[in-house]
């Protein structure tokens, strides 16, 4: 399976085809020749992906291809994994985040993250949303209150939660919990928002609201989003990156990826012939 050399040969792969939309604000996250190993097993192969500032980038690809791994590499969440090894660079403002002496906590404060499965903390809704601020030392009630309302409104949860802000977040439904996690992810006004299938637990209405939110946030925020829904990627993203078996196969403007991909693999995947 992982013998990709033979697959490459059989499928006649080109090197990554790049025809992405560029931002006038420049590159937010410049992933360069990034490799990652879980122990002996290589999960990412030589990925190069310049994430554009202020745009929405969708990561698509079949299950297990390394989308989450790549996303988690961007705020160094993978540091927690034992036996993890990387090579290559991820540049933010020209600095490699994997350099020695990088303040990982400060880095993570600049990036909000929403996980594949909702993971609210065992505290009240209010405390959940304000958590990123409180760990940053913010105690002023007016700021916290304001943040809670703004974030919950953005995450389309305010109407449902405004009367129970001080109830446990674990009492929310799965979809509500996910929207709460989104609210938490944007509470501290991060520059980059990393989302790992944020809508997988949501109904169509909530999904629409989140997509609307993503549309509003684009421009001010850089958003990297993993999704299994091709239509979602098509609706909300500017650029799309297609990954397969740990390799970045194609990175391009979303419309091009879905209508006129350069790679046969991408075409197969977006037309639903495999995946």
């Amino acid at each position: 399976m992982t013998d990709t050399a033979t697959i490459d040969a059989a499928q006649g792969y080109e090197p990554t085809a790049n025809h992405y939309k560029t931002s006038d604000q420049g590159v937010a996250l410049d992933i360069q020749n990034f490799n990652l190993w879980y122990g002996d097993k290589q999960a990412l192969f030589d990925n190069t992906l310049p994430v554009q500032k202020g745009l929405v980038t969708a990561l698509i690809g079949p299950s297990g291809c390394g989308k989450s791994t790549l996303l988690r590499s961007l705020n160094r969440m993978n540091d927690l994994v034992d036996g993890l090894r990387i090579s290559g660079k991820v540049l933010v403002d020209g600095f490699d985040i994997y350099n020695k002496g990088v303040d990982v906590i400060a880095l993570r404060k600049r990036m909000g993250m929403v996980f594949q499965k909702p993971n609210p903390f065992a505290m009240s809704i209010y405390d959940n949303v304000t958590y990123p601020l409180r760990v940053d030392g913010v105690t002023k009630k007016s700021i916290l209150d304001e943040t809670v309302e703004r974030s919950l409104r953005s995450a389309a949860l305010w109407d449902e939660a405004k009367d129970r802000l001080h109830d446990s977040a674990l009492g929310l439904s799965g979809g509500q919990q996910q929207r709460l996690c989104i609210a938490r992810g944007i509470a501290s006004d991060p520059e980059v928002l990393l989302m790992d299938e944020p809508c997988s637990a949501l109904d169509p209405i909530a999904t629409a609201k989140i997509e609307e939110l993503i549309g509003q946030l684009a421009g001010a925020y850089t958003i990297v989003m993993v999704t299994h829904s091709m239509s979602q990627a098509a609706r909300v993203s500017h650029n799309t990156a297609f990954m397969y078996l740990g390799r970045l196969i194609e990175y391009g403007e979303t419309t091009t990826i879905f209508t006129n991909p350069k790679q046969a693999r991408t075409n197969d995947y977006v037309t639903g012939r495999f995946g």
Partner: peptide, 20 residues
């Protein structure tokens, strides 16, 4: 997942242990 959620919010390891 709870620890990761906290760390992703920019909490330090000790803050994660202490609050989560």
């Amino acid at each position: 997942s709870m620890r990761e959620g906290s760390l992703a919010c920019g909490a330090s390891k000790w803050q994660t242990i202490r609050y989560i």
